[in-house]
């Protein structure tokens, strides 16, 4: 359960103060699939950073369960990101020198599990996204859709409660986009995740239970 109360985020950019989020109050119940849409520079990424404990609000509070993400120490935030929140990025963000399996394993490193268990769990996660036979491939040897599947496996291998996806289909063609959305939707349904997807794509947004539109730092519910 996310609770955002009067969240404002300002940046100083080249001497000008930019208000990326302007007094946003918002609740996202557990298990909801939410799509966030809006124009570029409207505050989508900033909102995702607040939800992902990647940055702190200038004012207001962001709570995930009992944790207040705006006031916790950096090390606690790192811990929450390592256990509670999975990320999927537009550019996949895989480590190019590591194999698919090793990329998935990186998500288990902060959890301190044994090397054997890490490998087993990573292999199972790859299987669950349909890439059980591609564990020893480098990202460059995989297609865009396959790379995003590896990234999804990496996000979910630690069994988080929340999955945050930043334009997960932005770099993919339409067929692959649908495949990835099917996969995410299936995982959301099976695992009872809270899934927040930032997207430009209305076709993607239409699959969500709830659609938010953010423009000039203000959030608006779409019917």
């Amino acid at each position: 359960m996310y609770r955002l109360k009067n969240v404002t985020k300002r940046y100083d950019a080249k001497g000008r103060t930019v208000t990326a989020l302007n007094d946003v109050t918002l609740e996202i119940p557990d298990g909801q699939l939410v799509a966030i849409q809006g124009p570029t520079g409207g505050g989508k990424s900033t909102l995702l950073q607040m939800l992902g404990a990647l940055d702190r609000p200038t004012s207001g509070t962001v709570e995930l369960g009992d944790a207040s993400l705006g006031t916790l120490a950096d090390s606690r935030l790192t811990g929450i990101r390592g256990t509670e929140i999975g990320f999927v990025f537009q550019g996949f963000n895989l480590i190019p020198t590591l194999t698919a399996l090793e990329n998935v394993e990186t998500a288990l490193v902060p959890l301190g599990v044994s090397a054997d268990e890490r490998r087993d769990r990573a292999a199972r996660a790859l299987e669950s996204v349909g890439l059980g036979d591609r564990g020893d491939h480098r990202p460059a040897e995989l297609s865009g859709g396959q790379q995003q599947r590896v990234a999804i496996a990496r996000a979910l291998v630690k069994e988080p409660n929340v999955l945050l996806a930043d334009e997960p289909t932005g770099n993919l063609d339409e067929d692959t986009r649908d495949e990835i959305m099917d996969l995410l939707e299936g995982l959301w349904r099976d695992r009872g995740l809270t899934l927040v997807i930032v997207t430009h794509d209305s076709a993607v947004a239409r699959r969500a239970q709830r659609r938010l539109h953010i423009k000039a730092g203000k959030v608006k519910e779409l019917a």
Partner: peptide, 16 residues
């Protein structure tokens, strides 16, 4: 930058 940012985002500590 993006690689290390990603590792931090998925829970790697600064020290690591």
């Amino acid at each position: 930058t993006r690689e290390f940012g990603t590792l931090k985002a998925i829970g790697w500590s600064n020290r690591r």
